[in-house]
Structures are given as structure tokens and as C-alpha cells.
């Protein structure tokens, strides 16, 4: 394997790989709880392949990115800047935030949109140790009856969805897999 540098690990065929990656991300967002494979990028540690691919697919100079905690390394910053040109900012201005659930911290730090423009909210990319169809029970748009997904913090995410139509939207990434949780999803703890 070649040495990882800030110049490597981007899309080798940008338009095609981005198209496939977006379809996976969009399908995940349209069907909360569904776990899909998301590959194409090879980001520096500690980012997962899925999280790096999401950044390559969705970020550019028009989007502010917040790198939380362990994700904020010089290597990640250089890689992100070289491949996307996205400015790295604080949580309050972020369009996209990336990190583990602990590092991302309380959701009150992020933009939730305004009543007239609820789309002006942050999308959080949460790096997870595991991603399985177990744990919280999800229902709502995109879900036939119910779906299950391992969520890091059910009370906080429930509070987020109770603000609908305001709130943050989430991608959960683990290795080369992704699942999504839009604010429209109703969350119940199992049982």
C-alpha cells in the first residue's frame, strides 16, 4: 500500500465515484435505519472510509466543516483542504460536522435551521464503533413500519427529532458503511 499523504485518498474518477457515493448516501437518508456500503475515498486516520467519502461527495468551498476532537488532526485538515477546499470552522457555523459522538458534544452547539428555512441546519457525520440494525426503534417517513438502528444517544436524538421541522440530520459511519437519521424520524428506545 502506498504511503498516505494529503494528496492521496481522493476520488480517482470524481464524477462517477461521487455519483455512486451520493446514491448510497441519499438512499440512506431516504430510508432511515438502512445500512449501506459507501466507498471511494481513502481518508487519513482516524476517519473511516465512509466518513471520508461523504466529505468528498458533499463538501466544497461553499460548506463549512467542523472537525471534532480526535478527527481534527493536521493530516485530516490538509487532506480535507486539498480535496474539497472546504473551510474548517467551529461547530456553530458548521454545515457538516465530523467526529465521534463524544467528540461532537452537545447538539445545542449546532445550527438547527430557522422556522422559514429549516434546511439551514448542520449535518453531523458521526463515527461509530459499530453500526447494526438493533437498539432504537425508528418510524416515520422513509420507513415502512419500523426499523432498528444502533444509536449513540437515544434521549439526545429524540430531543432533536422533537424539534421537527427544525433540527440536525445525521449520518452514522463505521468502516465503509453508512446509515442516516433525518430529523423527521420518530425514535423509541427498544422494548
Amino acid at each position: 500500500m502506498t504511503k498516505q499523504s494529503q494528496f492521496s485518498g481522493g476520488f480517482s474518477d470524481a464524477s462517477i465515484q461521487a455519483a455512486h457515493a451520493f446514491r448510497a448516501a441519499m438512499t440512506a437518508m431516504a430510508r432511515p435505519g438502512e445500512i449501506r456500503s459507501l466507498t471511494g475515498g481513502l481518508p487519513p486516520k482516524p476517519l473511516s472510509i465512509a466518513a471520508g467519502t461523504l466529505l468528498l461527495t458533499l463538501c466544497d468551498p461553499e460548506t463549512n466543516v467542523y472537525l471534532a476532537g480526535a478527527a481534527d488532526t493536521p493530516a485530516v485538515r490538509q487532506w480535507l483542504t486539498f480535496h474539497t477546499g472546504a473551510p474548517v470552522t467551529g461547530a456553530a457555523e458548521a454545515d457538516f460536522a465530523l467526529g465521534t459522538w463524544q467528540d461532537l458534544g452537545p447538539l445545542t452547539a449546532y445550527r438547527i435551521g430557522t422556522a422559514e428555512y429549516p434546511d439551514r441546519s448542520a449535518t453531523l457525520i458521526v463515527e461509530c464503533a459499530e453500526l447494526t440494525n438493533a437498539g432504537a426503534t425508528l418510524s416515520g417517513p422513509g420507513i415502512r413500519d419500523t426499523a432498528c438502528l444502533s444509536l449513540p444517544d437515544i434521549p439526545a436524538l429524540h430531543a432533536n427529532s422533537s424539534m421537527f421541522p427544525l433540527g440536525c440530520d445525521f449520518f452514522f459511519t463505521c468502516g465503509s458503511e453508512v446509515a442516516a437519521l433525518p430529523r423527521s424520524t420518530t425514535i423509541r428506545s427498544e422494548g
Binding site: F22, M26, T63, D119, F164, D169, P182, R183, S184
Partner: peptide, 11 residues
Amino acid sequence: RRAILKGLAVP
């Protein structure tokens, strides 16, 4: 694509 994702999140 970003607009589509927000659209799906707020049906």
C-alpha cells in the same frame, strides 16, 4: 445533492 438530502430530511 446537498439540497436533495435536506429535502428528504424535511419531507
